[in-house]
């Protein structure tokens, strides 16, 4: 695997005057939207994520790819401090997590919440304004306008007063995306944003994400559908508990790295079959 070298080469180009590997590393940590070093997370005795180094670039969409149980969601959650890390370091725009939380938006898995919860679409989007509104601030004026604009951007403006339980899976996912947009962040972390959504929603979400990228934001998404990785994403991070590969799609998404991530049972020509059969474990 050459990807560690690749990223160091990239960092060396950016680091003033070249410098040693350690200095390059430090420069990378200081500027990347999201960088982790030696990240280890464990549920019980078995590590879910083991000693992972990763650097997620700005102005790019990165797919986190790997088989079921490979620690993809866990990696995101550990970056956000939702699950505790056993070891390792997380840097967001060069800062510790707590200092940079306001620059991150998060879209959890749609299936992780109870959509029968008594609330409306607009109310869910308002949760993304919590940081500005605080415990008691009112959602009027500027904040209200922002919430409604975000619903517009995902094509859900007409559903503002709708009960969330009445939405289709695709509509629920759009609402979650609108909530993340309301956070007006610089780094967007999405956990399987395309899982169980209709084709029109998938298209709409990709369009919104590409627009974010064009605005210079960093987008990182856990992604299951290997067939669309090259269409949607610029960069890829392959993981199976440990880091397998990292880089642009052209560099890091190939038969060799997929075989390493999915257990050596695949050739590149089998990628389509893999997609049809669902990810191997």
């Amino acid at each position: 695997m050459t990807n560690g070298d690749t990223s160091n080469v990239l960092a060396a180009r950016i680091a003033p005057g070249g410098g040693t590997v350690q200095e390059d590393n430090a420069a990378e940590l200081a500027r990347a939207p999201l960088a982790v070093r030696g990240l280890t997370v464990s549920y019980g005795e078995k590590p879910a994520v083991f000693s992972v180094d990763a650097t997620f670039a700005d102005k790019a969409m990165t797919a986190i790819v790997g088989p079921n149980g490979a620690g993809k969601s866990t990696l995101l959650k550990a970056c956000l401090g939702i699950v505790p890390r056993v070891a390792g370091e997380v840097r967001v725009f060069g800062q510790p997590l707590e200092a940079a939380r306001h620059r991150i938006a998060y879209v959890p898995q749609r299936a992780s919440v109870d959509w029968d919860f008594p609330t409306t679409v607009l109310d869910v989007v308002r949760m993304g304004l919590y940081r500005e509104a605080g415990l008691f601030g009112r959602f009027t004026g500027r904040l209200d306008t922002r919430a409604r604009k975000c619903l517009e951007r995902v094509g859900m403006a007409d559903f503002a007063t709708r009960q969330i339980g009445q939405l289709s899976g695709g509509q629920q996912q759009r609402v979650f995306l609108a909530r993340a947009l309301a956070q007006e962040a610089d780094l967007y972390l999405l956990d399987e944003p395309f899982a169980g959504v209709d084709a029109a929603t998938e298209r709409a979400i990709v369009d919104v994400l590409k627009l974010l990228k064009a605005e210079g934001k960093a987008v990182v998404a856990v992604h299951h559908d290997l067939a669309t990785v090259a269409d949607y994403f610029d960069r890829v991070f392959l993981i199976n508990v440990r880091r397998i590969a990292e880089g642009t799609v052209a560099e890091a998404f190939n038969a060799e790295t997929l075989a390493a991530a999915y257990g050596g049972r695949l050739a590149a020509t089998h990628v389509d079959e893999l997609v049809l059969a669902g990810p191997l474990t």
Partner: peptide, 17 residues
């Protein structure tokens, strides 16, 4: 608001700090 957000979506609540 803490109760509401954390009850509806614990992960998102934690991501907000």
């Amino acid at each position: 608001r803490w109760l509401k957000i954390a009850t509806f979506d614990e992960g998102f609540a934690a991501s907000l700090g």
